[in-house]
Amino acid sequence: MSIGRLWNQLANPKRIPRLFSVVLGLILLVGFLVPMGLNDHQIYPRPAPQEQIDQKNPLAPYDRGGSPLTEPGIVKAQYPQNAEELGMITGYLSPIAIGVKNTTLYYGTSIYSSPGGLIDEILYYTRGFDTILESTILMMAFVLASWVALNFTMRRKEE
């Protein structure tokens, strides 16, 4: 009765991740047989790599046009009608960021990572609901880790 024994083995928790990874690995190999390609009609496209930095743009690689508080930048969202102030966040630069922009050519990433910028537009505005979830996942993982650490793994002498 080897099949019965095999089925019993499948119920051992330690084997499950191994089994899962074998199956998943084989499925990934199927990917090589499937014809694939990038559809070039994407939402939120970006310029070719290094194009903006080669043009000596101080906001490279995240310059999407627009001017702070007056004119929206270019954002190709899925549903522009659902986001009234689309493009304004991309165009916005905080006063410090404007200062940095006027001083040096090579700090575009920092400028667009400070408030304003395209990534903020996507993360907080058009796809803000995703970010809620992501920060919730983060919070739950930390609640869990810190709870286990506090109650079990750190106060081990007391038990």
Binding site: I53, P61, L105, Y106, Y107, G108, T109, S110
Partner: peptide
């Protein structure tokens, strides 16, 4: 780091 400098992203 050398590569990032070659890409001219000094803040990174």
């Amino acid at each position: 780091i050398g590569t990032v400098v070659a890409a001219k992203y000094l803040d990174v």
